[in-house]
Design a protein around this nucleic acid. Structure first.
Lengths: 197, 197
DNA sequence: ATAAATGTACTAACCGGTCGGTTTATACTT
DNA sequence: AAGTATAAACCGACCGGTTAGTACATTTAT
């Protein structure tokens, strides 16, 4: 039972920072914001994280691991097209519930910090690579099982699907209207159905 | 010849701010950054712009007008698919030249400030609406002239194309690799060619 | 002369981060 | 079990520097 209390504090800091980074952005969130909102004192925060960037890095790790464990879980045996569309539907639901505020944690951070902090950029790149790999695997599996035509190019299609996903969220966030994301969902469905064997 | 000198100063401020906002982000660019880089003094800057948000608003207007006058100009008579792909090729060239730094001015700002400053958000929404309208018109015209099948849905397809465009830039920016944007370009071509009559 | 344009010095609040010190929990000794 | 050593966890005042924005004098053009 070593460090049980400390682990709780650490989590509290990370989750508070995650929410603020997501909703207000990285640059627009100060360490004092995180201190006030979390109730953890500043000295304590810096006991766990050596800098804002270090905290940012831990937050990205946390969101990735949350996402891998509880979030998008593709089953290679299922219908790949249905599963990809389910990913879009989940996002559309979240977007609607949040009234198009916040958007995608990874997408937001990617555009904000990619040119500013290379360490964070690499973490985010890794997160996108994981997602792309999962979508690619899904398409490859579908092709091997004969569910999808052999003309589908898994790697390229996976990039394309995720780009459309992120771009759709971007448009919906700036317009405060899910319609654009829905259009992306519709077009991706049409696109993918064209590959069904 | 009223305000000739002043107009030059105003332009200098706007263009400096535009470059800094684009490359470093809105929040990460201070008024002092703009003052130092432009050579204009602070009092003079605030003579032309009442606040940072006011300046941001003027910068967005400036980039939109630049873009409308010299940038993407679609001709309704030409091949719609070729013209859309040309837009992607221009962006790919820019992305390559900039080594995937910066990305899309509008996309960056959209994600950064949409939930923070509603005035700016509306300006950015307007910019995207203009672009969507142009792409939609292009597709409509192609359909009416019989170049595109009647199954194409101009409004939905336009949203989709721009979302993929923005998402592709996002992925390339975070990965520092144009490959993802190229994949989007390839897939959009494949998608659009499917609509050729 | 007079109004537009520019320069300089300043503010109060906030920024990321540090500091010396206190409290609390565990480990070891007797 | 009681006392003690040690380290993990926590506190909040404080630091130099930066933030957006202001006050007001001065210069320049008409």
């Amino acid at each position: 039972m070593i460090g049980l209390k400390g682990e709780k504090t650490r989590r509290r800091i990370i989750e508070t920072a995650r929410d603020l980074f997501h909703l207000k952005g990285y640059m627009n969130t100060s360490m004092d914001n995180i201190v006030r909102r979390s109730g953890v004192t500043k000295g304590n925060l810096y006991y766990y994280f050596s800098s804002k960037e270090d905290l940012g890095s831990a937050v990205v790790d946390h969101v990735v691991s949350d996402w891998l464990s509880a979030g998008i879980r593709f089953r290679e045996k299922g219908d790949p097209i249905r599963q990809i569309l389910a990913m879009f539907q989940r996002a559309e639901k979240g977007l609607t519930e949040m009234e198009c505020k916040g958007g995608c944690f990874f997408g937001n951070l990617a555009l904000e910090v990619s040119d500013l902090h290379d360490g964070l950029r690499r973490k985010l790149e890794d997160a996108f690579l994981r997602l792309e790999f999962q979508v690619k695997s899904l398409l490859e599996s579908g092709r091997q099982r004969g569910v999808l035509k052999s003309t589908v190019h898994p790697r390229i299609a996976a990039s394309f699907i995720i780009a459309t996903f992120e771009g759709g969220i971007l448009l919906s966030k700036v317009k405060k209207d899910v319609q654009d994301f829905r259009s992306c969902s519709t077009m991706i469905r049409e696109f993918l159905e064209g590959f069904r064997a």
